[in-house]
């Protein structure tokens, strides 16, 4: 396996230009998401989905400014963040896929083989980030491939390539983690205490994300789960409980027949 590649998305320099979102659609020839004015700041596409593999979130944080207080120059923030599949170390989608359509590539990324996916939709419910989605018209599940095709051709993913401010950085995951640590320290030194990394720790619930983020607020503010856990972590326990229930079924039926034999005789 080649080096594990990943994304470090530094939202502190994201300008919300959506070039990543458009570049992704262009490269992957994705359908549009419909034309609906959502009135949620500048976000009219809402979330990641079958047809949107990069999604830029816009969060306006402004407190009402008393107009009379002329000395107040306002503390407003407009957070922007480009979300993407996390390419989890322990990827629930991949774990639960019953067909092997989802696989781990030589770059350590998680990719769906569209010709094998049978659209069972299991991955959709398994993903703790709500990334993957089934496209209704073709019945298959879709998500970011971290531009597997481009990577194989020695190119960086389209979204990272298009990002003007290097908010999306692509590279070997180890390097990115180092860079991210430095960046957070720098921001902390500059007084941005709220800067934090999300998904970079190999100790987290998904064993570390292959696409991790620098956020300026709590993850849920960006629509991200605060403490996602790969669902298969509890799988052994689940089987144990199910096994116990199975035994109970057998037992219950046995008891029923045993008891009703008496009844039958009566």
């Amino acid at each position: 396996m080649a080096e594990r590649m990943g994304f470090f998305t530094d939202t502190s320099v994201c300008i919300g230009c959506k070039a990543c979102q458009v570049a992704c659609k262009e490269w992957n020839l994705l359908p549009d998401d419909g034309f609906v004015f959502e009135a949620n700041s500048y976000d009219n596409t809402g979330a990641l989905g079958a047809n949107t593999w990069r999604h830029v979130a816009f969060i306006e944080q402004s407190r009402p400014v008393p107009v009379d207080d002329s000395a107040d120059d306002g503390v407003e923030r407009w957070l922007m963040s480009s979300d993407v599949c996390k390419h989890c170390t322990h990827a629930a989608c991949l774990d639960v896929c019953p067909t092997g359509a989802l696989f781990r590539t030589e770059f350590g990324t998680v990719v769906i083989q569209e010709d094998i996916c049978n659209g069972c939709g299991y991955c959709v419910s398994a993903c703790p980030y709500g990334v993957i989605e089934r496209r209704e018209d073709d019945g298959r599940a879709w998500k970011c491939t971290m531009c597997y095709d481009r990577q194989r051709g020695g190119l960086e993913p389209a979204c990272a390539k298009a990002c003007p401010t290097d908010s999306i950085q692509f590279g070997p995951l180890d390097e990115l983690r180092e860079r991210a640590e430095e960046r957070v320290e720098r921001l902390h030194a500059d007084g941005q205490a709220e800067a934090r990394l999300y998904g970079e720790s190999p100790d987290d619930g998904v064993g570390g994300a292959g696409a991790f983020f620098l956020l300026l607020d709590e993850p849920e503010v960006y629509g991200l789960p605060p403490d996602p856990v790969v669902t298969t972590r509890d799988l052994p326990a689940m089987w144990r409980w199910a096994g116990a229930a199975a035994l109970s079924v057998a037992g219950a039926v046995a008891v029923a027949f045993a008891s009703s034999r008496k009844g039958a005789r009566r």
Partner: peptide
């Protein structure tokens, strides 16, 4: 262009 139009679909 669909990819742009969907991002800002209406005059506001």
């Amino acid at each position: 262009l669909a990819y742009l139009a969907e991002l800002q679909p209406e005059l506001f």
